[in-house]
């Protein structure tokens, strides 16, 4: 089955992103396809490479990046939600005159249309959050 995933919460404060991560891993292991993971609300905070948890804690951002690289998964951070919360890629850095960017490997910033498209193209859209 083809799944679309929506992650509505940031890492650590809320379990939603780890649950989504585990779901995606399990789905792939079972032979399913992940059309896209879309990060919305505070979920965009899953996409900053500046995340530096203590060494004995899971690095959720790296886990997403590794998963994306290994299985070629499309990780999309909502641009409007990202702008509010300071998640920036090179394009956004230039457009908004910021002095740096922080997007993690494997993530890209794009519009809400990508979420709707995930709903249309996937057989199931699964939302993780409160």
């Amino acid at each position: 089955m083809k799944f679309g995933i929506q992650v509505n919460e940031g890492p650590y404060t809320h379990e939603a992103s780890v649950s989504a991560l585990n779901f995606v891993k399990a789905a792939l292991e079972a032979g399913h396809e992940i059309f896209r993971v879309f990060f919305y609300h505070d979920g965009v905070n899953n996409g900053t490479r500046y995340t530096t948890p203590p060494q004995d804690d899971i690095n959720i951002v790296n886990a997403w990046s590794e998963l994306a690289e290994k299985h070629n998964i499309d990780l999309v951070v909502c641009v409007a939600a990202a702008q509010r919360r300071g998640i920036v890629d090179e394009g956004e850095q230039e457009r908004n005159g910021k002095d740096g960017n922080n997007i993690a490997p494997g993530f890209r910033i794009s519009g809400l249309g990508q979420l709707i498209e995930a709903g249309i193209q996937s057989e199931r859209l699964v939302v993780f959050g409160d």
């Binding site: 919305y40 939600a81 519009g111 809400l112 249309g113 979420l115 709707i116 709903g119 249309i120």
Partner: peptide, 18 residues
């Protein structure tokens, strides 16, 4: 912010004519 950002999805999503 959930309500407001939800409304933003609805408004953007309307362009997709679902």
């Amino acid at each position: 912010i959930y309500a407001w950002e939800s409304l933003e999805v609805v408004l953007i999503g309307a362009a997709f004519e679902q």
